[in-house]
C-alpha cells in the first residue's frame, strides 16, 4: 500500500507549553494569586525593581513571593530574599527563557501554599527575544525598559513589547543625566503596542512605586481570580 503524499498535521509547535500554561493559570485563579511575568534585557533593573516591589507590598500587609530565573547564579534570589518574601531560584543552565514546565516543576518542589499569597512574581531571564513566545500562565506580562537603554528599543524588539501588557520605565531618577527622551520612548512603545500603559519608576528613590502598586491592585481586582472560600 502506498503512503499518502501529504500528511496533514496542523498542530501548534508550542501547544504543550500553551496547554501547561493554561492549566497553571487555572490553578493560580483557583488559589486566588495574581501572577506577574517580568521581562527585560539584562541590566534593565528587574531585580532591583522586584526587590523594591516585594518590600513595598510587604509593608502594605500584602503577601508576595517570587520565582527568579537566572542563567547560572543564585545572586538575584539572595538579593530578593532580603525583602523577607519567599523566593526561589530557577537556574536555567544556559536556557535563554523560562517555560511553563519549569514553573510547574519548581512550584511543586517548593511546596509553597499559593492560597496564602496575593502575588507571585516570575522574574524571567534577561532577554528581549525568547521569552516572548512562552506563556507561563501569568495574568500580567510586564516589560521593563531602563532610561539608559535607548528609546528605540521597542522598535528593535517589537514582538516582546507587543506581547506585554504594561511597560515600566526604570531608573527614572537618572533620566535627566542620561538625556532620556520621554516622548520618543512613548512613541516607540505605542507604535508597537498602541495604548499600552507606561509607568515610570525608580527602585532607588521609590519614585513612581506607589503608582505601580496601585496599578497592580487595580489589576488584581479586575482579573477573574477566585479565592478559595473556606
Amino acid at each position: 500500500m502506498n503512503n499518502p503524499r501529504i500528511l496533514e498535521i496542523r498542530r501548534g509547535v508550542l501547544e504543550k507549553n500553551d496547554l501547561l500554561a493554561q492549566n497553571l493559570r487555572a490553578h493560580f485563579n483557583e488559589a486566588g494569586v495574581m501572577v506577574i511575568n517580568l521581562v527585560s534585557s539584562p541590566g534593565a533593573g528587574k531585580t532591583a525593581f522586584l526587590e523594591a516591589t516585594l518590600r513595598h507590598l510587604r509593608e502594605n500587609g500584602l503577601r508576595p513571593a517570587a520565582l527568579v530565573g537566572d542563567l547560572a547564579t543564585d545572586n538575584d534570589a539572595q538579593r530578593l530574599a532580603r525583602s523577607g518574601a519567599p523566593v526561589r531560584q530557577i537556574v536555567t543552565g544556559g536556557n535563554c527563557h523560562l517555560e511553563a514546565d519549569m514553573i510547574s516543576t519548581h512550584l511543586a518542589d517548593w511546596q509553597l501554599d499559593l492560597t496564602n499569597l496575593d502575588y507571585l512574581f516570575i522574574e524571567n531571564v534577561g532577554n528581549l527575544v525568547c521569552p516572548a513566545s512562552y506563556d507561563l500562565g501569568e495574568h500580567l506580562r510586564v516589560v521593563l525598559l531602563s532610561v539608559t537603554e535607548g528609546e528605540d528599543k521597542p522598535l528593535k524588539y517589537p514582538t516582546l513589547f507587543n506581547s506585554a501588557d504594561v511597560t515600566i520605565i526604570t531608573k527614572i531618577d537618572i533620566a535627566a543625566a542620561v538625556e532620556f527622551d520621554r516622548a520618543a520612548a512613548t512613541a516607540a512603545i505605542h507604535a508597537v503596542r498602541p495604548g499600552m500603559i507606561i509607568l515610570e519608576t525608580s527602585a532607588k528613590t521609590g519614585e513612581g512605586m506607589q503608582n505601580w502598586l496601585e496599578y497592580l491592585n487595580t489589576c488584581r481586582q479586575t482579573y477573574p481570580l477566585q479565592p478559595i472560600t473556606t
Partner: peptide
C-alpha cells in the same frame, strides 16, 4: 507557529 503537514 504551526506544523502544517508532512510531504511523504
Amino acid at each position: 507557529l504551526e506544523v502544517v503537514s508532512l510531504e511523504i
